[in-house]
């Protein structure tokens, strides 16, 4: 009999024999980093993204499960929130969906969330759907206003939003006073990176 399709069971039951081949990760932008003056652009490659959808009809149960698991409330629309231990950053994505961002510690990031939440919520690994770019520095707003329709001067810590830049879907998260995390679909990551780099080059002598 072939085994249950569920990935969690696959892992928990282990495997008897493994193939002789190895797969190596190769994200498109891996290792690219760059300074623009004092502004730093870094490709984040170790952070997992897991989506959690909230089951219809059990919103309240989910909310309390969530709070029990992570020591914080669900993020408000347009906002992000850290878990109490600050290991997880949750982004509000839609009325019934949030993203959990955390340091990846295994092959199955969805399991990390599943272990915390139990069977409440529908979970999908989104890590490979997105490229993640972290920007830090004082001139980010000046550069990003060339491509970002959001008002980044009024985008305080704890805000996040999905929008469109240069025809590309993107998610912005204010991570620190001088720092933003940006997500954009991984297949077009190269175009996204070029758009950001060009914005710096157009706005300063870097």
């Amino acid at each position: 009999m072939w085994k249950s399709a569920h990935p969690i069971f696959m892992i928990l039951t282990g495997v008897d024999s493994v193939a002789d081949y190895k797969l190596e990760p190769f994200p498109f932008l891996w290792g690219r980093e760059r300074y623009f003056g004092n502004n730093y652009l870094d490709i984040v490659s170790t952070q997992a993204i897991v989506s959690i959808a909230i089951p219809r009809g059990s919103e309240k149960d989910f909310s309390s499960e969530f709070t029990n698991a992570f020591g914080t409330y669900l993020p408000e629309p347009g906002h992000s929130v850290f878990s109490k231990n600050r290991e997880f950053l949750f982004l509000w994505m839609s009325p019934d969906q949030i993203f959990a961002l955390f340091e990846r510690d295994g092959l199955y990031p969805e399991l990390t969330v599943r272990e915390k939440l139990g069977d409440t919520g529908y979970i999908t690994d989104q890590t490979d759907n997105w490229c993640q770019i972290r920007l830090t520095g004082q001139d980010i707003v000046q550069a990003m206003e060339r491509i970002c329709p959001l008002d980044l001067n009024q985008f305080p810590l704890g805000k996040c939003a999905r929008t469109v830049m240069e025809h590309l879907s993107s998610v912005l998260v204010r991570e620190s006073d001088e720092g933003f995390l940006l997500l954009s679909p991984s297949s077009s990551a190269q175009s996204f990176l070029e758009a950001i780099e060009q914005s710096f080059l157009n706005t300063g002598d870097y």
Partner: peptide, 25 residues
């Protein structure tokens, strides 16, 4: 990794989660 691909177990229009190349999802 340790996956029975035979027609009996995994016929036309079957699907599964599995691992490949030593535990890759």
């Amino acid at each position: 990794d340790d996956f029975d691909l035979s027609n009996e177990v995994f016929p036309f229009m079957a699907c599964a989660n599995l691992t490949v190349c030593g535990g890759r999802k």
